[in-house]
Simulated assay, not measured.
Amino acid sequence: MRLSTVILPVHRWSQGKKIWRRAEDLGFHAAYTYDHLSWRSFRDKPWFGAVPTLTAAATVTERIRLGTLVTSPNFRHPVTLAKDLIALDDVSGGRITLGIGAGGTGFDATVLGQEAWTPRERADRFAEFVPLLDRLLTEDSVTYDGTFYSAVEARGIPGCVQRPRLPFAVAATGPRGLKLAARYGQAWVTTGDPTLFETGTPEQSREAVRGQIERLGKACAEIGREASEVEKILLTGFTPDRDGPMKSLDAFVDFAGRHFELGITEIAVHAPIPDSEFAADQRVFERIATEALAQLRL
């Protein structure tokens, strides 16, 4: 199992760079950030752009992987996103993973003046967005005329440092999204079952994740791909136990072990932010980073 962290883009860089460097020093596999223009309870608080933040993080780290959890079509276009990703992969020396999902109904869904898309519309756009982005990151020139997106001789030169392109971590739980994860994803991302967040139990949540992994396996089998080729990432903080795994090292080890048994291969925990839903003891967070995997191997 791999252990990663999520560093929300809420810090001015004079402070933020220390947090990204610390994530590398602690030995995390990857450090991700949200790709939103604002988010929930942070809407009226500091919130910086994901691409500039990751670019800056790439310049102050050397080994840790970096990426988004997740980017969505809500305010991104495949052509401009591909250009940013190629530059970001170059600056980082090939350490970028793109977490990508269909988006939701939060502030990003209407900030550009559009009506929030229905679940069907989000799925339709996502089904066009991901294949086009794949082409833009692997081909020198792309022309495409789709229902939602177009590209006219869009150049992707020199391409990604990582070949054939940087990896996609596709966030999905529905059948169409899981098919995209199976075909285009080097990883798959889940937060669990959102319908269980308020009233479900940890046992129900784990059973839901088990079902998601089984459906991903079936989607892979349909195209002749081994499900083991797709890493399975759990973004914590959105299951019924919420902050329970961050209460102590033992609590996290138990949480991680139970999900490892389901097939989860990477767990991402939020770096603590005081006075927020991601508040946690920094000492516990650092013990999890440095000791949890060793205990899981026992």
Rank of each mutant, 00 (worst) to 15 (best):
R2W: 14
R2E: 15
L3D: 03
I7S: 04
I7L: 14
R12A: 12
R12Q: 12
R12S: 11
W13H: 06
Q15K: 13
G16H: 02
G16P: 07
K17D: 13
R21Y: 05
A23Q: 00
E24T: 00
D25W: 00
L26N: 01
L26V: 02
A31I: 00
Y32A: 06
Y32T: 08
T33H: 08
T33D: 06
W39R: 06
S41V: 15
S41Y: 15
F42W: 14
D44E: 15
D44V: 09
G49W: 05
A50W: 04
A50Y: 07
T59H: 09
T59D: 08
V60S: 03
R63M: 06
R65I: 02
T71I: 04
S72G: 02
N74Q: 12
N74P: 03
H77G: 07
V79D: 09
T80E: 12
D84M: 05
L85I: 09
A87C: 12
L88C: 04
D89S: 05
D90L: 09
D90F: 09
V91T: 05
S92A: 07
G94V: 09
G94C: 05
I96V: 08
I96G: 02
I96N: 03
I100K: 05
T105A: 13
F107E: 14
A109M: 07
V111P: 04
L112D: 11
E115N: 10
E115C: 03
A116L: 09
W117C: 00
T118W: 02
D124S: 02
R125C: 00
R125E: 00
V130C: 08
P131E: 09
L137Y: 10
T138Y: 09
E139F: 11
S141A: 14
V142N: 06
V142W: 08
V142Q: 07
F148E: 02
F148G: 01
R155A: 11
G156D: 06
I157L: 11
G159Q: 12
C160N: 15
Q162Y: 08
L166H: 06
A171G: 10
A171N: 04
T173W: 10
G174P: 10
P175Y: 04
R176P: 03
A181Y: 09
R183V: 13
R183T: 15
Y184C: 14
Q186A: 14
Q186K: 14
W188F: 03
V189D: 01
T191W: 14
T195R: 14
T199R: 12
P202N: 01
R206Q: 03
A208S: 13
V209Q: 02
I213F: 04
G217Y: 10
K218V: 15
A221R: 15
E226L: 13
S228Q: 11
S228E: 15
E231F: 10
E231R: 13
L234R: 00
T236C: 01
P240A: 00
P240F: 03
D241K: 01
D241V: 06
R242C: 01
P245W: 01
K247R: 15
K247Y: 10
F252D: 04
F252H: 08
L262H: 06
T265E: 09
T265I: 08
H270S: 05
S276E: 05
A279P: 04
F285N: 00
R287L: 04
A289N: 00
T290M: 01
L293I: 13
A294W: 13
L296W: 11
R297P: 11
R297V: 15
L298P: 14
